[in-house]
Design a binder for these strands. Structure first.
Lengths: 247, 247
DNA sequence: TTATTATTTTCCCATTTTGGGACAATAATA
DNA sequence: TATTATTGTCCCAAAATGGGAAAATAATAA
């Protein structure tokens, strides 16, 4: 079956990518009290993948990760962190592109550098959900947010990559104060608490959470936010330090 | 100048290594109250390097790291942790092997896959200093321990790799309790404290350190150690959990 | 105008953890 | 038996955390 898949010279490696090496980014967002990841659907399949790409021969891996991220989200300044490199010998043998994509040039694909074993450098990105413009790549037709607790079937070992990224995010949450990158410029204390609870996976006490956050002297209190609800209006805060930190 | 360097078919990549990808391990040891790293001297040069190697086409990166470690130390079960992947576009452009090694087949080397740009996966290993049998590889003639505070000139970006490994070790010291892998089977409390102080780089209080260690219920108190010194003999301890954890 | 309701914010006290000084124990030597 | 150099233990103050309760307040209902 012939499908309208444009691989932009990928098969011939016209862009001179490093072979056997890829980059995959877990793009985290926060929306409606849920932690989300941006996934790409492999062309006309039920299988999804992380935002990934390759490293050009003269390109650093951090710039490559930022480039890929820019292409998938439209964002320039993103909090990006390299968390682990995945290199199990069989990691790209299950749910391969060749298994999924049965477009015209399958034979050509099977023999191409794309269908070889890959070691993948894992990054995770923290973005403001509302600012992202999800854009599919050459291998996918849809870019969509998924709830972390309700992931679709995924290519290769991408599910484990997400799992490990979340572990790393949790470990960095308190030390590197990265959570703010998932929120808009201003936010309320309950919103911030919900973010923390969602990432950590367990509830926190309002009083103690607020005490801890305020004691760190990293938040600036703006005005109150009147939502129209029949209760006390929460304060808006903004993060004092620049919220985006690029690798 | 012709030198007796045996590259074991490296130049022709007879072992079918993944190109542009390497593994480097920072091997930490602890000796005479000093944190040490095992370095290899590039053949007949004053430049040293980490224990490194390449990944075979059908080999996972963790097994590859263990294989390299085994070759350099003679140890089978080592605590090994992947901490960062280094992929700056220029990282292998300064202090290159080609600059250092001017052995006969320089021209062949300059054109070989070895002289290309490499992305390197960084691991660090924690070993019992006394059990290591330092062994050079094809590119080096001596393997030697260096004090972390007195490092020699190093190839590529290996100095930064060590620095970042130490940062990672420090961050993991309390959470993963990895320090014990640097000590022999049994050790005294002052020895353990010295290890912690050396890694962290600042002094700790005896009383509080002991209280903390004992409260974790991870140490088994053995008999006393009589050294002949004119003072109270310290207890020997051993770590309850298995001290080696392989990636 | 006043009570009610749903939240947010603050306060306070008990408990736990940590900081840090002092003392007790002890192995060899004088 | 006293001395010396460590190691091991104890204790109290200070700080951090756990957790309940009260105060504040924005809209609505009476």
């Amino acid at each position: 079956m012939e499908r309208n898949v444009d691989l932009n010279g990928f098969l011939e490696n016209k862009q001179n990518f490093i072979p056997h090496l890829s980059i995959d980014s877990v793009i985290f967002g926060f929306h409606q009290d849920q932690l989300k990841v941006l996934l790409l659907r492999v062309h006309d399949s039920g299988v999804w993948s992380l935002s990934g790409g390759f490293v050009r021969m003269e390109e650093g891996i951090d710039p490559a990760a930022l480039r890929i991220l820019r292409e998938r989200t439209g964002l320039e300044n993103v909090y990006l962190e390299q968390y682990h490199t995945f290199g199990h010998e069989d990691r790209s043998k299950k749910n391969t592109l060749a298994d999924i994509l049965d477009f015209g040039h399958t034979e050509e694909f099977r023999n191409s550098w794309l269908n070889k074993r890959f070691v993948s450098i894992g990054y995770y990105a923290l973005v403001d959900f509302s600012k992202v413009n999800p854009t599919p790549d050459s291998f996918s037709d849809i870019a969509e947010w998924f709830d972390l607790k309700d992931l679709p079937p995924m290519i290769f070992d991408h599910r484990e990559m997400i799992h490990k990224a979340l572990e790393s995010l949790r470990a960095n949450l308190d030390t590197k104060l990265v959570g703010f990158n998932l929120l808009p410029e201003t936010f309320t204390m309950p919103e911030l608490q919900s973010l923390y609870e969602t990432i950590l996976g367990y509830p926190l006490r309002r009083n103690n959470f607020q005490r801890k956050m305020l004691s760190m002297d990293i938040l600036e209190r703006i005005e109150k936010l009147y939502t129209g609800a029949a209760n006390k209006a929460p304060y808006l805060y903004k993060f004092k330090a620049p919220t985006t930190e690029v690798v």
